[in-house]
Amino acid sequence: MGVGIAEEKSESEEKVWSFCRMPFWQTSSSNGNANGSSSSSSSSMGNNTVYQQQTQNSQLGERSTVTSTNALFSMAKSLIPTRRRLRLDPPNKLYFPYEPGKQVRSAIDIKNTSKSHVAFKFQTNAPKSCYMRPPEGILAPGESLIATVFKFVEPPENNEKPIEKKSRVKFKIMSLKVKGETDYVPELFDEQKDQVSVEQILLVVFLDPERACPALEKLRRQLAEAEAALESRKKPQEDTGPRIVGEGLVIDEWKERRERYLAKQQVEGVGPT
């Protein structure tokens, strides 16, 4: 019994002495292991928080930079004048003879001044009382046409003087660059909205048909040219080349006339004498 107690005491004493014989750095590291791990974990958490805040600030800064850049780009784009593809004559007005209760006509010369094919389109805020001929089309580089605009003139109200009556009707001409040899379809302007340019907004100006002025004379001349161009388009084109009949057989017009002449001579030769 006493021997067992003595052995237990010797083992405990040996552990104490072995602990005392350990180097100072080893004892301190073992004692502060828990404190060190807790402090390192807290410092790593702090570093992660700081990193996340810096990342968020960087992302916010990038977003603000992109937003400000887009705003500046939009502002600069709005300040840059739109490059015209069409030349209009008159440039910003449509002149109509003032004849209340009647349908009157105006004209405008449209010319493609760009180096590519351009589609154009008319729009008005009064489609029930106005229409254009042609309302749209495609012009080759350097090509021009005279469009005719029809408008019904409302009678004056409130004792207004006829010639002083102002109209709220406006016309807008839009243009779109297209590839050559393209047929016009209404979907062109809907499919490429970002490429459409507003060439001009035309205001309505009334002229006294009884009073001669340069604008009225020019209008009458343009209307006459538009009518002549329309009539020429209605006429069938004369075929000046050789005619092809049957399966690719080319008949010379001179040879055909000669054969007809010889046939006529033969008929006359066999007739009564």
Score class of each variant (00 low, 15 high):
Met1His: 10
Met1Arg: 14
Gly2Asn: 09
Val3His: 08
Gly4Cys: 06
Gly4Asn: 13
Glu8Pro: 00
Glu11His: 08
Ser12Lys: 15
Lys15Gly: 02
Arg21Thr: 03
Arg21Leu: 01
Pro23Glu: 12
Ser28Val: 14
Ser29Ala: 15
Asn33Ser: 13
Ala34Glu: 06
Ser37Trp: 00
Ser39Asp: 06
Ser39Phe: 02
Ser40Gly: 10
Met45Asp: 06
Gly46Asp: 11
Asn48Val: 05
Val50Asn: 05
Thr55Met: 02
Gly61Arg: 14
Glu62Asn: 07
Thr65Ser: 11
Thr69Lys: 09
Leu72Gly: 05
Ser74Val: 10
Ser78Thr: 12
Leu79Trp: 04
Leu79Ser: 13
Leu79Pro: 00
Ile80Ala: 05
Pro81Ala: 07
Thr82Glu: 15
Thr82Asp: 13
Arg85Gln: 01
Arg87Met: 09
Leu88Val: 12
Pro90Glu: 07
Asn92Lys: 07
Asn92Trp: 00
Lys93Asn: 14
Tyr95Lys: 01
Phe96Pro: 03
Pro97Gln: 04
Tyr98Glu: 03
Glu99Gly: 00
Pro100Asp: 06
Pro100Ile: 03
Lys102Val: 04
Gln103Ile: 12
Ser106Tyr: 01
Ser106Val: 10
Ile108Arg: 04
Ile110Pro: 05
Ile110Phe: 00
Lys111Tyr: 00
Asn112His: 03
Ser114Gln: 13
Lys115Tyr: 01
Ser116Gln: 09
Val118Leu: 07
Phe122Glu: 14
Phe122Lys: 10
Gln123Glu: 08
Gln123Phe: 03
Ala126Phe: 00
Cys130Arg: 05
Cys130Tyr: 01
Tyr131Met: 07
Arg133Ser: 13
Arg133Ile: 10
Glu136Leu: 01
Glu136Ser: 15
Gly137Ser: 11
Gly137Asn: 11
Gly142Asn: 13
Glu143Val: 05
Ser144Gly: 07
Ala147Pro: 03
Ala147Asn: 13
Ala147Gln: 06
Phe150Pro: 00
Glu164Val: 01
Lys166Asn: 12
Lys166Arg: 15
Ser167Trp: 04
Ser167Cys: 14
Lys172Gly: 03
Lys172Ala: 11
Lys172Gln: 05
Leu176Pro: 14
Gly180Lys: 05
Glu181Leu: 02
Glu181Asp: 02
Tyr184His: 15
Pro186Cys: 05
Pro186Ala: 08
Asp190Ser: 12
Asp194Met: 10
Val196Pro: 11
Ser197Gly: 02
Val198Arg: 09
Gln200Pro: 02
Gln200Glu: 15
Gln200Leu: 06
Leu202Phe: 00
Leu203His: 03
Val205Arg: 10
Val205Ala: 09
Val205Cys: 08
Arg211Lys: 15
Ala212Ser: 08
Pro214Asn: 12
Lys218Gly: 12
Leu219Cys: 08
Arg221Thr: 07
Gln222Cys: 10
Leu223Ala: 04
Leu223Val: 07
Ala224Cys: 06
Glu225Ile: 11
Glu225Leu: 15
Ala226Met: 06
Ala226His: 07
Ala229Ser: 11
Leu230Val: 04
Leu230Thr: 11
Glu231Arg: 14
Lys234Ile: 14
Lys234Asp: 11
Asp239Gln: 14
Pro242Glu: 04
Ile244Ala: 06
Val245Gln: 10
Gly248Glu: 06
Asp252Arg: 02
Glu253Phe: 12
Glu253Ile: 04
Trp254Glu: 02
Trp254Gln: 00
Glu259Met: 09
Glu259Ala: 08
Leu262Cys: 07
Lys264Arg: 15
Val267Leu: 15
Glu268Leu: 14
Val270Thr: 00
Pro272Gly: 01
